[in-house]
């Protein structure tokens, strides 16, 4: 059997690809229970009041697009809805890497519904402020000293909604999207409630902050994004991907059971025979 393992390895991959393709060819609606964290996430965004400003650090890398972009698109459109209905203000900024700028720029240009909103009055994109944690600290401490222009190169002194934004105290809440460490945002922005859209792989990382209520709500990868899309009634890419993800999880569980049956039923028993 051990000689066959490389072939089994490839067969596992091949079957995996086959199974995840099924929901795209024959759409199936698998049940999706809504987790309390996603409910809280929506509630926090809904509770923003007139004049509140939310700042979002869009620092994910392009490689994380599949996991974080559906959540970002749904979240930003929901925030823009709050801007339209309640007069909330929305600031988007990138601090991490040039690649994060490509990620944020793609969302900003192609996926946001800004109908009925005025750029610079209701929402603004500040572009890439290099420096990551130093930039985060700078924006929290003295925004006008760090951010000179917006994404289009317009001086922030000429952007109406930026006139009242000087430091962390002027923001009601902050949010971040990250495909790496969540720690810098916690270190520099914990003075105000933080929400996040993060890779499912990094959930363990943010748990100490969630328990201490520094991060007040979060979206966990595609699953969280699909739940959020369902809650806000905007069917997006996460909803389309979640059935395939459920299929993949069923397949993973089946593999775990099969491997354990094989190990305890054959390998272990054979090992005992050899020992005797």
């Amino acid at each position: 059997m051990s000689a066959m393992l490389p072939k089994v390895d490839r067969l596992i991959f091949l079957l995996f690809l086959f199974f995840i393709a099924i929901p795209f060819i024959l759409p199936v609606a698998l049940p999706l229970p809504i987790s309390p964290t996603t409910l809280k996430y929506k509630e926090i965004l809904e509770n923003l009041r007139k004049g509140d400003t939310i700042i979002w650090f869009v620092d994910a890398m392009i490689g994380a697009w599949a996991e974080t972009a559906p959540g970002d698109i749904a979240t930003f459109n929901f925030i823009l809805e709050q801007c339209r209905e309640k007069g909330v203000k929305f600031v988007m900024v990138t601090t991490f890497h040039a690649e994060s700028l490509a990620y944020a720029e793609t969302i900003f240009k192609n996926y946001l519904n800004t109908e009925g909103l005025t750029y610079g009055v209701d929402y603004v994109y500040l572009g890439w402020i290099p420096g990551y944690e130093s930039a985060l600290a700078g924006i929290a401490g003295n925004l006008p000293a760090i951010v000179k222009t917006d994404y289009y190169g317009t001086p922030i002194s000429q952007i109406p909604m930026m006139q009242n934004l000087h430091s962390i105290d002027d923001f009601a809440i902050s949010g971040f999207t990250s495909s790496t460490s969540p720690d810098p945002y916690i270190r520099q922005w914990s003075k105000k409630p933080i929400i996040t859209n993060i890779l499912a792989a990094n959930i363990g990382w943010i748990m100490p902050y969630v328990e201490k209520r520094i991060i007040v709500a979060y979206l966990a990868g595609v699953r969280g994004a699909a739940e959020f899309e369902y809650l806000i009634g905007r069917i997006g890419s996460a909803t389309k991907l979640i059935s395939a993800q459920s299929t993949a999880h069923i397949y993973a569980v089946a593999l775990l059971i099969a491997a354990n049956i094989y190990y305890f039923g054959f390998v272990r028993r054979r090992g005992e025979v050899i020992k005797k």
């Binding site: 995840i20 599949a66 959930i203 990868g221 389309k240 991907l241 395939a244 993949a248």
Partner: peptide, 26 residues
């Protein structure tokens, strides 16, 4: 702890493959 990390890591990576499959299967 490692099991939890592996599980969530696997979940993330599956999402990448699924995103690609949404292009390949349709």
């Amino acid at each position: 702890a490692f099991g939890f990390m592996l599980g969530t890591f696997l979940m993330s990576n599956i999402a990448f493959a699924i995103q690609n499959m949404s292009i390949l299967a349709v």
